[in-house]
């Protein structure tokens, strides 16, 4: 279970990205808007065609094939067949991973009073 040591969260939205682009490359608002919207639209359209998107320094949007499976409605317990499908997953690039590691250490230092114990995952980051 993911936990956040901090309840205060800010959400970055498309509007924030538009403002960022508008100021950093000094273009009109409607051009910045179309740039940001096309950015995500091109990624989505590429994935839709079955091609993965690799953004160096950020990460890869990869596609995974899922087989048909039986699932249960957790509320009613009724079985339901989930059809075979393709899903998207995001893999952070090595540079981003490293920065997240540093963040984890900082967050851990802040949350030292109550270190939660987790079940071991498949890949262990052992110090």
């Amino acid at each position: 279970m993911p936990t956040s040591s901090d309840n205060f969260m800010q959400t970055l939205t498309k509007a924030d990205l538009i403002t960022t682009v508008e100021t950093t490359i000094a273009i009109e608002n409607h051009l910045a808007r179309s740039l940001v919207e096309d950015f995500f639209e091109i990624i989505a359209a590429t994935l839709e065609q079955g091609e993965e998107v690799k953004l160096s320094g950020f990460g890869n949007f990869t596609l995974l094939k899922k087989k048909e499976r039986l699932a249960r409605n957790p509320k009613t317990g009724a079985k339901a067949l989930v059809s075979a499908r393709t899903v998207v997953s995001f893999r952070a690039s090595p540079t981003l991973k490293r920065r997240f590691e540093e963040l984890a250490h900082r967050m851990h230092d802040q949350a030292l009073k109550k270190p939660p114990i987790k079940k071991p995952a498949k890949e262990l980051a052992i110090t």
């Binding site: 936990t3 969260m9 800010q10 963040l103 114990i117």
Partner: peptide, 23 residues
């Protein structure tokens, strides 16, 4: 900002923190 990114129609990205654990 330990925050989230929400992009309408695309998806959301968030940071998940996993505490130290016994392995």
């Amino acid at each position: 900002e330990k925050g989230r990114i929400e992009l309408r129609g695309f998806g959301s990205l968030s940071c998940r923190y996993y505490g130290p654990r016994r392995a």
